[in-house]
């Protein structure tokens, strides 16, 4: 099995400013439930940052706030130093988001969806086909691109969403449970690509329930519990002497 190494060592020192800064983020849903409470963290270029927590802990809420999908009341989110609330379009142009459920436009064909993303993110005409070809071949989806998305399986939709997120070369990639629904080969391809992107200076922030993947893939990890950050830092530091699983269970049970 391929051994993933933290990419930060590959990057020069001068690019180590945060690509994603979350400062004191709080989100209270209508009805009074506080889903995220004073959360702060930073993701730098070259980081593969794993975001862990049990169901309802506030992972998806945080991710949706970071990507501009969900409005929030308190705190600040900065993408490459730009305030998400002040410059939402600029911030969104620098990142890509893959939700936990790949609900795409089912009335479009796969290639129409990718061309739509290409137009929205202004991918130059000359590079568009080659970028699509590169990722679609790796995920073995090229032959299916002419078919309606409505005819795709869950995994194929997930692959298409990933390709759509990658073709515009985001500087910050935000993924919510990206490995759910992917076959083992596609999951391996995605991990390889994540690692390659980090080597190129991209920052990756993703949530997962698969602790082995987080432990193996991430150079930084944050554990969220009841909307608050329970632990955050380099993977080695967070897990200490034990495994990430034992550390996670200890934190979650210790309420």
């Amino acid at each position: 099995m391929m051994d993933f190494k933290p990419a930060e060592r590959l990057l020069p020192v001068f690019v180590r400013w945060p690509m994603l800064q979350i400062n004191n983020l709080s989100k209270t849903y209508q009805g009074g439930k506080k889903a995220v409470d004073g959360l702060s963290l930073e993701v730098c270029p070259g980081d593969i940052f794993g975001f862990i927590g049990h169901n309802g802990a506030g992972k998806t809420t945080t991710i949706r706030a970071v990507t501009g999908v969900l409005a929030f009341e308190e705190g600040e989110i900065r993408i490459n130093g730009k305030d998400l609330r002040r410059e939402p379009v600029l911030c969104k142009s620098m990142m890509a988001y893959i939700p936990d459920n790949p609900d795409l436009y089912e009335h479009l064909t796969g290639i129409q969806y990718l061309n739509f993303i290409g137009d929205i993110f202004r991918i130059p005409k000359g590079e568009r086909v080659e970028r699509i070809r590169g990722f679609a071949d790796r995920f073995e989806l090229t032959a299916d691109l002419g078919d309606l998305i409505a005819s795709y399986s869950h995994g194929m939709k997930q692959k298409l969403a990933i390709i759509g997120a990658l073709i515009h070369q985001p500087r910050l990639l935000v993924l919510d449970e990206p490995f759910v629904g992917l076959d083992p080969k596609a999951a391996f391809t995605l991990k390889t690509i994540m690692h390659e992107l980090c080597g190129q200076g991209c920052a990756i922030f993703f949530s997962t329930h698969i602790l082995e993947v987080a432990e193996r893939l991430c150079n930084k990890i944050a554990i969220i519990r009841k909307g608050r950050l329970a632990a955050c830092g380099p993977t080695d530091q967070v897990r200490g002497d034990g495994s990430l699983e034992s550390m996670f269970l200890e934190l979650i049970d210790h309420e």
């Binding site: 796969g110 290639i111 061309n115 290409g118 137009d119 005409k125 568009r128 086909v129 699509i132 070809r133 679609a136 090229t142 032959a143 299916d144 691109l145 002419g146 078919d147 309606l148 409505a150 005819s151």
Partner: peptide
Amino acid sequence: HHRTADYRLRPMKTGS
């Protein structure tokens, strides 16, 4: 759904 799974990439129309 009609599925053909025989798509070949070709140049695409771009726009705003």
